[in-house]
Amino acid sequence: MIVQKLNQLLGKRVVEIILITIGSFMVAVGFNAFLLPNRIVSGGINGLTIILHEMFNWSPSIVLYVVNIVLLIACFLILGKEIFMKSILGSLLVPMFISLLHTLTPATHEPILAAIFGGLCIGIGVGLVFVGNGSTGGTTLIAKMIQKFTNIKLGILVGFCDGLVILSALFIFDIQQVLYALISLFITSRVVDMVQVGPDLSKNLFIISPKNERIAELLMKELDSGVTFLPVEGGHRLDQKKMIMTTIRESNYTNIKQTILEIDPEAFMVVSSANEVYGKGFTLFRD
């Protein structure tokens, strides 16, 4: 919703550039302040640069520039101009910011804290880049190029590429460092999802009750929730019933559940998480 308002105020292209720039800066901060000084190889090309820095003392920013430029050229040839244009800004900004911030004082020398906050920082950064319809290059581009010639899902390919980088760290670092890397990688992936979807989680409720009309009236009038009736058929008696489907904000769930059970203590309810809901009363569609 915030992004949509900014799009209307500044224009979509300007907002995308701002998001990719801020996101790339956050990635560089996480890398220089947490991961590199603590030698935490949290997957991706960034992790590979830490391995090469440890082995040959190569500059991470130079390695990133070289690798990302090669990948961008391959991306243009294999995936086309559209994906190339979406990837070019983030792929070049990340190594630039890493180079500019190479003198940044390490935020901590405690590996577990570095893994947690490094993963948090990079997750926020990559998430912002994705919200800006950009890419930081690296293993994402490699996975997309492999996917073009296979039927393997992109998420599996990215995980495989990141896994290879972390696995290679076993030849340089001890197992404890690799475990820290796995913690960081997990946090990064979860935060990326949260930034893209947003923290405003919702829940889907499916309710079957002989008092469904009273429950629906309560949901619509008193709790201001939309309601949909779905026809269902019982499995044992094959009797026709109506099931209520409604989507509510997670913060209202406990109150709504208790109210429904007060109307019908034997109401049958199925609850599932809905991470992203569009429409009236929830998130508005982005342009």
Rank of each mutant, 00 (worst) to 15 (best):
V3G: 12
K5C: 08
K5G: 07
L6C: 05
N7P: 11
N7C: 13
N7Y: 15
L9S: 08
G11A: 09
I17N: 01
I18D: 05
L19Q: 10
I20R: 00
T21C: 06
V27R: 01
A28M: 02
F31L: 12
N32E: 05
F34P: 04
F34Y: 09
L36T: 01
P37A: 13
S42P: 05
G43F: 07
L48R: 00
L52P: 02
M55V: 12
P60S: 13
I62G: 04
I62T: 13
Y65H: 06
N68R: 03
L72P: 05
L72K: 12
I73A: 09
I83F: 13
P95E: 11
T105F: 15
A107T: 02
T108N: 02
L113S: 08
A114Y: 00
I116D: 04
G119M: 03
L120F: 14
I124M: 09
G125V: 02
V129S: 06
N133I: 04
G138W: 04
T140C: 09
Q147A: 14
F149L: 12
L154H: 06
L154E: 07
I156T: 14
V158G: 05
V158Q: 06
G159E: 07
G163C: 04
V165M: 07
L167S: 06
A169D: 02
L170Q: 09
I175A: 15
Q177E: 14
Y180M: 05
A181D: 05
I187V: 12
S189L: 12
S189C: 10
V191D: 08
V192I: 08
M194A: 12
M194Y: 08
M194T: 10
V197R: 12
G198V: 08
K203C: 04
N204Y: 02
L205G: 02
F206P: 00
I207L: 02
S209C: 03
N212L: 00
L218I: 03
L219W: 00
M220S: 13
K221E: 09
S225H: 15
S225I: 10
T228Y: 04
R237Q: 15
I248Q: 06
R249P: 03
N255D: 12
K257R: 15
E262N: 12
E262Q: 10
I263P: 03
M269Y: 06
V271T: 08
S272C: 10
E276I: 06
Y278W: 13
K280E: 13
G281M: 11
F282I: 02
L284F: 12
D287M: 11
